[in-house]
Amino acid sequence: MTIREEIERIEERILSPYATLSSRSKGRAHPEEKCSVRTDFQRDRDRIIYSKAFRRLKHKTQVFISPEGDHYRTRLTHTLEVSQIARTIARSLRLNEDLTEAIALGHDLGHTPFGHAGERVLQEICPLGFKHNEQSVRVVEKLEKNGKGLNLTYEVLNGILCHTGEQKAETLEGCIVKFADRIAYINHDIEDAIRGGVISQDELPKSCLKVLGNTSGERINNMIVNIIENSRDKGEISMSDEFREATEELRNFMFRNVYIGSSAKAEEGKAENLIRSLYYKLTEQPELLPAEFYNKIDEEGIERVVCDYIAGMTDRYAINTFNSIFIPARWMRF
């Protein structure tokens, strides 16, 4: 018996009847020989961590564009925080922690530079449309490893696709990540907004704090515990009505006071114009694309290729690319 098989037998013994067992995965689009040490979901987690798209998250906006302070979140730190919250819930409910972690680590791989500002622009101008969750799936299926993709399991792909929007994941592990994502970004964005002077602690709605807690740590812990208590020995992941309503009210507060029109978003108009300018320029002059993207135009179409290229950029790479295309270099004579 291999180590992987031992782990799979342990899962069958100790995990909840509602857990997704590694040994019963629906598999990969391209069948592979099993690893002797790792389960399929553990391999998926590792492939995501080792991917280029994952490394690029460290230079992608969460809320604040190119923040100067060392303690503001990036898309990478957000992803790690989502993973930790999701794992805690999964472990407490005896669900598959490896599957949960893989989904959490991969959920934002398709996010654009400059956060949701970049996503809005691509959704607006690309005829094919754009959603970051769909792009995350595209990244792991078609863009990573020079077009080969990561060949992840069905369950991980489904969880990544369904981490946002109306679609519900087919596994409870995927449902956990959807909750964990919201818990993370609401509370950690509050911390960053307070640190940046965009809002103050006193402005937070008192009715929400009374239910959820006064500090970020209290709220995160209480929300996690509430989900665990309301989901134990059930075939669904849920919050109590009181917590769900307070969470939604706090999220709406953040949209009104931080995510839309606040000083934290003062540079978003510039970021949107940058993305828009790059998109139109590259579709008009595809020869400006790197060779690995230019060579895909016949197969994928110019709109898809340009969208893939821009969505994969970090904030600073997008700025540098814009400068190289639109800003004249200084003439130097020695």
Rank of each mutant, 00 (worst) to 15 (best):
I3G: 04
I3Y: 11
I3N: 08
I7H: 06
L15G: 05
Y18K: 00
S36P: 04
V37C: 11
T39A: 08
D44E: 02
R45M: 13
I48Q: 00
I49V: 13
Y50Q: 13
K52V: 14
K52W: 03
A53F: 09
K60S: 00
I65Q: 07
S66V: 06
S66I: 08
P67L: 12
E68M: 05
E68W: 02
G69W: 07
R73P: 06
R75Q: 15
L76R: 10
L80D: 02
I85R: 02
R87F: 06
R91V: 09
R91A: 15
S92T: 10
L95T: 00
E101W: 07
E101G: 01
E101L: 12
A104V: 08
L105S: 00
L105G: 01
D108Q: 08
G110K: 02
A117I: 06
A117W: 09
E119D: 09
R120M: 14
Q123R: 10
Q123S: 13
L128M: 06
F130P: 12
K131R: 13
H132Y: 12
S136R: 00
V140Y: 09
K142R: 11
K142W: 05
G147N: 12
V156H: 01
G159R: 04
C162I: 00
C162W: 03
H163L: 08
H163D: 05
E166K: 07
E166F: 02
T171P: 09
T171D: 05
K178S: 10
F179C: 09
A180K: 04
I183F: 14
I183M: 14
A184L: 04
A184T: 15
H188L: 14
D189N: 10
D192C: 04
D192A: 06
A193P: 03
I194Q: 13
R195Y: 12
V198Q: 00
V198P: 04
D202R: 12
K206Q: 14
N214R: 13
T215P: 08
S216D: 02
R219L: 04
I224C: 01
V225R: 12
E229P: 06
S231Y: 04
G235E: 11
M239E: 09
M239W: 10
R244E: 15
A246H: 07
L250D: 07
N252M: 10
Y259L: 12
I260N: 10
G261W: 08
G261S: 13
S262M: 11
S263Y: 02
A264Q: 03
N273R: 15
Y280G: 03
E287R: 13
Y294C: 09
K296N: 06
E299P: 01
G301D: 06
R304L: 13
R304C: 12
V305N: 01
C307K: 14
M313T: 01
A318K: 00
I319H: 01
A329T: 12
W331R: 09
